[in-house]
Design a binder for these strands. Structure first.
Length: 419
RNA sequence: GUGGCUGUAGUUCAAUUGGCAGAGCACAGGAUUGUGGUUCCUGUUGUCGUGGGUUCGAGCCCCAUCAGCCACCCCA
């Protein structure tokens, strides 16, 4: 019970009874991304801390309190990556991927790290999947990214989720809108919660998704971002919606979606599962037209999303979408008698060369124990090797579900099992 | 960083006012010697999260600490 070492807070081990589910989800994601012609990119799990500090914004919680920062032996300051977009864009710029023709369509999976207090669906080391499409401001790309996410979720079989979209405009629009919010909320300043009073000066848009009742009430009549969009932003948003309809992605517009990170522009979207509890976003994303330039590349637009594997897993378990897909060996070897046990390996090796998966447990010697084990792991076949049979060059193959068995020459074995 | 609940066998959970640590499941062995699933019998497993304190005596009370869960916050 009490082992000497414990895993760090907010982390967890993925044990064999769950790892096959992970493999499945990751597989579906990769296949979906490839269906949309996205290519995999793998970046390190740590980067210069400054990369995240500049791109996410100094006021974001990620930067202010959630980063795992450390200094290496030369005094360089690194951080375990808290999110995936900035590293991908860094790699894009550093490797000059802009030089190749067309839009760069990239996907990734891997662990992210945030020093948060753990709770349902929230961990300190958590696993994300995501895509980034860099090099186009066309609304088609916005819709396609959302459609990719939607297709992925559909392939998993999930039904309990909702797609919400919004436009957060461009920098100019955002500035005007923030100003309007400040003007609207300042007269009510004393009624706002403590957090919102600081938000008012730092990040007025954050006021809108405050959960305090009074703040919500006041926010009801607040100016709406969509009314402040200029002509270009509105046109972009409308076209995104048109393409989404063509992709047959059901969505609703939620004008209160805001992004925690500074670099978002235009389209913002969230995939929500309301049955998950407080941490109900299974994925989110948006357009980031200023980010590539900010990180030191050309002025190129981009859009992407990221989602958390843990929350998908929770959602899928909620909807009972896993059937037993754990690895089952095709053949369980039952060796009886010392002679048979002494030469099992040659038969096992024969089968494996034919790509037939085999399990044998040398610790179990009695027939009964081995048959029991064969049954327990649900192996379809038991291959019984007895001293008598081996002398005749024969083995007994038993089809466990039908309780039937036949004697076979060893040379006929693999072809028989395959058919 | 804040709050609430929780921590006992591999696992799920019991243990009355403080008085000999238990059960189901799982696991192992067995029920006429070479045939599994049901059934029956038998058996193994404990740093009671950790460290202090109170007491003749603590799984139970007190303090601290660690961890988990849920929520705030924030987000995936």
């Amino acid at each position: 019970m009490s082992s000497k070492y414990n895993l760090p807070r907010g982390t967890y081990d993925i044990l064999p009874d769950v790892s096959y589910k992970w493999e499945y989800i990751i597989g579906v994601f990769k296949n979906t991304a490839k269906l949309f012609n996205y290519k995999e990119i793998v970046t390190p799990i740590f980067e210069e801390a400054d990369l995240f500090e500049r791109s996410s914004g100094e006021t974001s919680d990620i930067v202010q309190k959630e980063m795992y920062k450390f200094t290496d032996k030369k005094g360089r300051v690194f951080a375990l990556r808290p999110e995936g977009t900035a590293p991908v864009v860094r790699s894009f710029v550093e490797n000059n991927l802009a030089a190749s023709a067309g839009i760069q369509k990239l996907f990734y999976t891997g662990p992210m790290f945030r020093y948060d207090r753990p709770q349902k669906g929230r961990y300190r080391q958590f696993y994300q999947y995501g895509v980034e499409a860099i090099g186009s401001n066309h609304p088609y790309v916005d819709a396609e990214v959302i459609a990719l996410f939607y297709t992925f979720i559909q392939k998993l079989g999930l039904t309990e989720f909702e797609v919400q979209i919004n436009s957060v405009g461009n920098a100019k629009v955002a500035e005007r809108y923030d100003q309007a919010l400040i003007e609207y909320f300042t007269p009510h300043k004393d009624e706002l919660c403590f957090d919102c009073q600081t938000r008012l000066t730092k990040k007025p848009r954050r006021l809108l998704d405050c959960k305090v009742k009074r703040c919500r009430e006041i926010g009801q009549a607040a100016p709406v971002m969509l009314d402040y969009l200029d002509e270009e932003c509105t046109a972009h948003f409308e076209q995104v919606k048109t393409y989404l309809n063509q992709f047959k992605v059901p969505y609703s517009v939620n004008p209160k979606i805001v992004r925690g990170l500074d670099y978002y522009t235009h389209t913002a979207f969230e995939f929500l599962n309301h049955k998950l509890g407080a941490q109900n976003a299974i994925g989110a994303g948006g357009r980031y037209n200023g980010l590539v330039e900010q990180i030191g590349g050309k002025s190129l637009p981009g859009i992407g999303f990221a989602g958390g594997f843990e929350r998908l897993l929770l959602s899928m378990e909620e909807e009972n979408l896993f059937s037993g897909e754990e690895l089952i060996p095709q053949v369980y070897i039952v060796a009886i008698g010392e002679k048979a046990q002494a030469q099992v390996a040659s038969i096992i090796s024969l089968l494996r060369q034919e790509n037939i998966s085999v399990e044998y447990d040398p610790e179990k010697t009695s027939l009964k124990a081995q048959m029991k084990a064969a049954d327990k792991i649900k192996s379809p076949y038991a291959l019984i090797l007895g001293d008598d049979e081996l002398e005749r060059g024969v083995v007994t193959l038993k089809y466990l579900q039908e309780r039937k068995q036949i004697d076979l020459a060893i040379s006929d074995l693999s072809s028989y099992i395959k058919s």
